[in-house]
Each structure stands twice: as structure tokens, then as C-alpha cells.
Design a protein around this nucleic acid. Structure first.
Lengths: 212, 212
DNA sequence: CTTTACAGACCAAGCGCTTGCTTGGTAGCT
DNA sequence: AGCTACCAAGCAAGCGCTTGGTCTGTAAAG
């Protein structure tokens, strides 16, 4: 009666980028719990209960609890790097590209992958140094996407300050939104994205139409 | 031989705003450990070892481990609210006031109280709901300081967007600096403050002289 | 078309260790 | 005499993880 594969245990509260295999469901549940209670306060028994199996059965899928956290992080970085790459490639104008990047990042932070993203920010130090290094390598790819666009904007005179520092200020603005942005509120994600871009390129003309 | 009061156990690595009483030393050590390892991964035995006493003796000063975390947070909010109030009162021009606030906040995040401040951001959910509410009340006072100045700037036409949202973007930029700012690096804290203020009020004239 | 083999998904029980915290008592200062 | 600061020992609970076994679906072998 309790084969996980064949049935929907509670609701299929599944996080984007994670499939509906036993492993994927485990990752979705773990991501949500890690976000809500933190990695350390989440027990393997919690995760097991959420998915509907015994705590010991977790270790049929992952060697350690830390590996679950690691898998969540790797999965979400990969997924969002892809998303950002697609968003950028949809435009040629660098301002439009920056707007697309911001929109994509906001989507990941307050949209479909918000659980896993906030885990990425807040549970970083729960990883062993080796796994931290591996995650960092993936993050570098992600950051290169940003710096390419920002460097071009800088070269074309859209702003005068150091692009690296501008990116850091943007990261701060974006990642903090997970503490206050209300999906139901009157501020639309797209408007917020424009607001942030305007902090960087000033009141220069922003394209009117929006696209994915 | 091991009375904590009468001797310096390691070095007096003491955090601003916390005195050199047994309680104060405990809080300083705890803040640093909480920052480095996180609240949950820090054991009362860790804190005790750092201070040079037995783990059980901790509970002569605090009823529970959570109360240590709570005390760290209350102490640092109080200290930094005072600092910001003084910074604001040193100026009458609203742009200069905003700059002073940003400088003060950066000082708290990457300067003297950086350990305790990052605990405030990252270990928030380790508090019980009641204690969270108490801390929130203190934070409201802190935030009112900001909104008063931002509202005035808004009214005087220095920027056109919602002051509340501007403050949130600023909070993000500021708090994120604790992940990247290098005290030894070439970027001075004061320059960073000006950079941030310029994101809000644009290229409007910033005062040249700096003051505490 | 059955039989046999096997791997993936899971259970029931529990081991060894760490954790926050308690208890009962002592040393020194005022 | 009493208070503050501490020690030495240890308890109960919870933790990550292990072990040995069961069930089920799939697929090749006979």
C-alpha cells in the first residue's frame, strides 16, 4: 500500500525542476522543510513523514542527510542557470537582456523555485567544504552570465561604477525580496524587475513590452 | 583559578555594545560562534569552552540556549538603533541624513557588530514565535528611523518610487554586503555608502565632507 | 506461458552518540 | 551570612544512520 512511486501521498507539492520520481519527491519535500525550519532543525524523520515512508528508507536514496541538501542546491542552480541563459538569448539589446535576467532571477527567488533558492542562501554553511566548493563552481557559471551583460552595459556607458559591485548590489536587492515580496500584493514581479534595473542604468529608456 | 570575572581567558575578543561582565563575554563569544557555525550547530559546550567554563555553568546566566540568541539580538538592535539615531541627528539636510544612516548601517553589518548582525539575519527562525514578535517590535523602531528620512526625501522630490520599497531594496543591498565586503580591500566603507545612496537619490549632489 | 532471477523501494527495530539542561555542592567576595 | 560564579557528574530525549529482511514489478530463461 505504501509504494511511493505508484500513488500521490499528500498533494503533489512539487518544486519546478524536480521530477516526480521518488528521488524528486524527496527533494521537493526536503527543500520545503529546509526552508521552513532550516537544515539542522529538519530531521530525516520529518522528511520521511512528509513523503510517507519510514525514516530509514531515506538512505536507500541518499547516502547522508547532507547529500540531500547538496542535491537540492545543485538541482536549483542548474535549473535557474538554464532559465537565465534562455532569458538572455531572447534579447539582443543589453538593457533588455539585463531586465530579462532580473526578471528571471526574481522568478527563481519569489516564484517557482523559491523554497530551494532560500535554502541555497540560508543553509550554505551546512555543507562540507568540498561540497561548498562544488556548488561555488556552479555559481560561477551563473554569475558569469550576469557579468557579461553588465560589462557590456558599462562599456556602452549605461553606468559608470564597477560592474562587479553593481552585480553585488543587485544580488542583495534580489535575494532580500524573499523576505517581503507578496505574490498576492499589488506590486507585480515585472514592475519590481524594472524598478531594480532602473537603480543600475538610471532613467534610460526601458522597453515597454515584456516577454519570457 | 577559573573565575571568569577576574581574568582575561583568551583575548578580550569583545563585541561592541556588550560589556565585560560574565554575561557580556558570554554574549560576545556566542555571537561569534552563532555567526560562524549557525545557532543549531553551536553547542552550549562550544560556548562554554570559548569562555573557559563548564557547559552547565552557562545556565547560571541564561535559562535556555535560545535566550542567549535572543539576548544577542536584542542587544545588537538596541545598540545600532542608538547609533543610527545619533547619525541622523548630526545632520539636517535629508540627503546627508540618508547618507549617515547608510554609513551607520554598513558599519553595523561589516564593522564592529558584524557577528551579531549576521546572526540577526540568518538565525531569525531559531527564535520562538513570541520572541520573534518581541524582536520585531524593536526592529520597527529601527525601520521608522529610515522611513522618516525616506518619506521626507520622497516629498521633496529626490525620488519618485514608493519609499517603503526603496527601503527594502536598500536593506537588501546593505545586508548582502556581509557576504562580500572586504575590510582590507580597496573599496572604502564610505564610498560604498555613497554608491548605495546614489542608487536612491540619483546623481543629485552629495555632500563632500564625511562625519560620524 | 510459466518459472526463476533480480533489482528497486520500502519496513521494523534499534544502536551509538550528542544534545540541552539539571542537580547538588563548593570557593570566594562582601 | 549570603550572594555570585562556578564545577563535576549525569540524565532523558532526540539525532543520523545501520541492519536484515519483505514486497513488488520486470524480464530473461526454460
Amino acid at each position: 500500500m505504501t509504494q511511493l512511486t505508484g500513488m500521490a501521498p499528500d498533494q503533489a507539492t512539487q518544486i519546478y525542476g524536480m521530477d516526480d520520481s521518488p528521488r524528486g519527491k524527496l527533494l521537493s519535500a526536503a527543500a520545503r522543510l529546509f526552508r521552513d525550519k532550516g537544515f539542522d532543525r529538519t530531521t530525516v524523520r520529518d522528511i520521511a513523514r512528509e513523503v510517507g515512508i519510514q525514516s530509514g528508507s531515506i538512505f536507500h536514496h541518499f547516502p547522508t542527510k547532507e547529500d540531500i541538501l547538496f542535491a537540492v542546491m545543485v538541482e536549483v542552480i542548474r535549473f535557474n542557470t538554464d532559465r537565465l541563459r534562455r532569458a538572455r538569448d531572447a534579447h539582443s539589446d543589453p538593457v533588455a537582456q539585463l531586465l530579462a535576467l532580473v526578471r528571471g532571477e526574481l522568478q527563481s527567488i519569489i516564484g517557482d523555485t523559491r523554497e530551494a533558492m532560500s535554502v541555497l542562501v540560508y543553509e550554505w554553511r551546512c555543507l562540507s567544504p568540498e561540497k561548498q566548493a562544488q556548488t561555488l563552481a556552479l555559481r560561477d557559471i551563473y554569475e558569469t552570465l550576469w557579468l557579461d551583460v553588465l560589462n557590456r552595459l558599462h562599456a556602452e556607458g549605461y553606468f559608470s561604477d564597477d560592474p562587479v559591485i553593481m552585480r553585488r548590489l543587485m544580488t542583495g536587492m534580489s535575494s532580500w525580496t524573499n523576505t517581503w515580496f507578496d505574490q498576492q500584493g499589488s506590486l507585480r514581479l515585472d514592475d519590481l524587475a524594472r524598478l531594480i534595473v532602473r537603480r543600475i542604468v538610471g532613467e534610460a529608456s526601458l522597453p515597454e513590452v515584456s516577454s519570457t
